[in-house]
Every structure is written in structure tokens, then in C-alpha cells.
């Protein structure tokens, strides 16, 4: 619908710039879970700054806390202590449902399992966050995205009629549809074959480069991380190393994972 009607883009660009150069700022973030009587510390004081227009890969072995980091940074989960700022807003101080509303309007997600609503067409899936927010889609922006990821002819299809790679590309357009401050990608290539994975990673890198998007991607795949500008390595709930992506490739070539 929104692709066929040529209405002008009316979406206001969200721009409260307190931290002009940081898309994401984590300060001494702790996250503890109580599991029965025992307390499990998933994040043990993480501080991190992600500049606007950069592509960060978070790596680490299973249980190192990288998924928790993504959950806390994106506002899906609360933090036990410390603060999270996204584009100048302290999201760790937001209460429900304001945290959800903020996330909906300012944060994009790409999940390993795509998280498409099976009853909706690709087109409807893409616009769902906009509809929930009661916002009008930025048609030119969406048309550009759809063409960029190459799913123009698949918009009328349900997720079950799409390949994994196509579903993830739909999910990517959905994540970008709201002009988010930052896009979080959680193992976006985990369920894809090598070719599909490469395409998604290239698209992520493209939107960072061409559109100035900020992307934080959690992955355990060094090849995936190699597409990012920077790689942060995590162990036991802490970031132990931050280095340019090219270095990762070299290291893994020697040490593997």
C-alpha cells in the first residue's frame, strides 16, 4: 500500500542531541538474575560507547553475557545498576510502558529467528512497528530500503512462503523502517546458510556506510564480525577487549574459536 501511493515523507526526524556523537553509551552496567536462591551475575560492570554511524560486533563464548548486554543495551531488559543512554536518553531510567514506547520509536531489532508475525504479509510485517506507534510510514525511505534488500516482489507473501534469507531481509527493513537511533542485531546470520548470511552482513554494512545507521551486532561467528568496524570481546560478563575488525580476522585465522 505505502509503496504504491506516492505520499510525501512526513516523519519527523527524532533529534534530541545531548550526546552528539554517541548512539549508545553504557556506564558500569550490572545485570544480576536470581535463580531460585542463587544470584547469577550476567553483566559485571560493562561500559561501552558506540559512536554514531559505526558498526560494532560483540563476540564471546556462550554464557559470556553478550546476549544480556544486547538485551540491556536495547531496553528489552532492565539493568540492575549502571546506566544506558541511547541517543542521549537514559533508557535505564525509563519505566514501562515508556521504555517499550521508546524502544519502538527509536530502536531497531534484527533477531536470529526473524520474529516475523506469521499471519501478516512481508509488507504488513515491515509496517507493524509504525502502525503500533500510530505513525505514518516514510514511503520513500521504505521503498528505498525494500529495493536495497531486494524483496520488492516478495512483499505480498507471508513469512512461511519466504526463504530464511528473505525473511531476515524483511526483518532488516522492519528494523530500519522507523529511522531508528540504533539497530541491534542478535546473531542475525545464525539460522542462515553461508550465502544468505553474507548477503545480510553486507546489507548491514551497507546501511551503516550509505545511510549512516548505527548497528550493534552480537555474534559468535568471526566471519560475521569481520564485516563490522569494531569488535568487542566479552568474557564472564565483562568486555575484555575492543579492537578493529580486521584484527579479529587475523587473530581467528591463527587461533580460531
Amino acid at each position: 500500500m505505502w509503496l504504491r501511493r506516492g505520499a510525501p515523507a512526513t516523519t519527523p526526524e527524532p533529534s534530541p542531541e545531548a550526546e552528539p556523537h554517541s548512539a549508545l553509551l553504557l556506564n558500569e552496567v550490572h545485570r544480576r538474575y536470581s535463580d531460585g536462591g542463587a544470584t547469577v551475575t550476567a553483566l559485571a560492570g560493562v561500559s561501552l560507547r558506540v559512536p554514531r554511524g559505526s558498526f560494532l560486533a560483540v563476540m564471546g563464548p556462550s554464557g559470556s553475557g553478550k546476549s544480556t548486554l544486547l538485551n540491556c543495551a536495547s531496553g528489552l531488559d532492565t539493568v540492575s545498576s549502571g546506566s544506558v543512554r541511547i541517543g542521549g536518553t537514559d533508557t535505564s531510567a525509563l519505566k514501562e510502558p515508556r521504555r517499550t514506547l521508546f524502544r519502538r520509536d527509536r530502536v531497531g531489532f534484527v533477531f536470529q529467528s526473524y520474529n516475523l508475525v506469521p499471519t501478516l504479509t512481508a509488507e504488513d510485517n515491515i509496517t507493524l512497528p509504525l502502525r503500533l506507534a500510530g505513525r505514518h510510514p516514510d514511503r520513500a525511505w521504505l521503498r528505498g530500503l525494500v529495493e536495497r534488500v531486494g524483496i520488492t516482489d516478495r512483499l505480498r507473501h507471508r513469512p512461511s512462503e519466504l526463504s530464511g534469507g528473505q525473511q531476515q531481509r524483511v526483518a532488516l527493513v522492519r528494523a530500519l523502517a522507523t529511522h531508528p537511533e540504533i539497530v541491534f542485531a542478535d546473531e542475525p546470520t545464525g539460522a542462515l546458510d553461508a550465502q544468505g548470511a553474507r548477503r545480510i552482513l553486507r546489507l548491514l554494512a551497507d546501511v551503516v556506510r550509505d545511510l549512516g545507521q548505527t548497528v550493534v551486532m552480537v555474534t559468535h561467528d568471526p566471519d560475521a564480525a569481520a564485516h563490522a568496524h569494531t569488535t568487542a570481546s566479552m568474557t564472564d560478563g565483562r568486555i575484555v577487549d575492543v579492537h578493529p575488525a580486521a584484527a579479529t580476522r587475523r587473530f581467528t585465522a591463527v587461533g580460531g574459536e
Binding site: 528489552l76 514501562e96 510502558p97 517499550t100 514506547l101 524502544r103 519502538r104 520509536d105 530502536v107 531489532f109 533477531f111 520474529n115 516475523l116 508475525v117 507493524l128 512497528p129 503500533l132 506507534a133 522492519r174
Partner: peptide, 15 residues
């Protein structure tokens, strides 16, 4: 699962 998906896409508990 469905509710979780919708929640992760920014649907509030009220919605």
C-alpha cells in the same frame, strides 16, 4: 511466543 514477538517489536503490555 507470538506475544513475545510483538512485545519485542515494541508493543506495550497494554497494547
Amino acid at each position: 511466543t507470538e506475544v513475545d514477538t510483538l512485545r519485542s517489536l515494541g508493543m506495550t503490555p497494554g497494547q
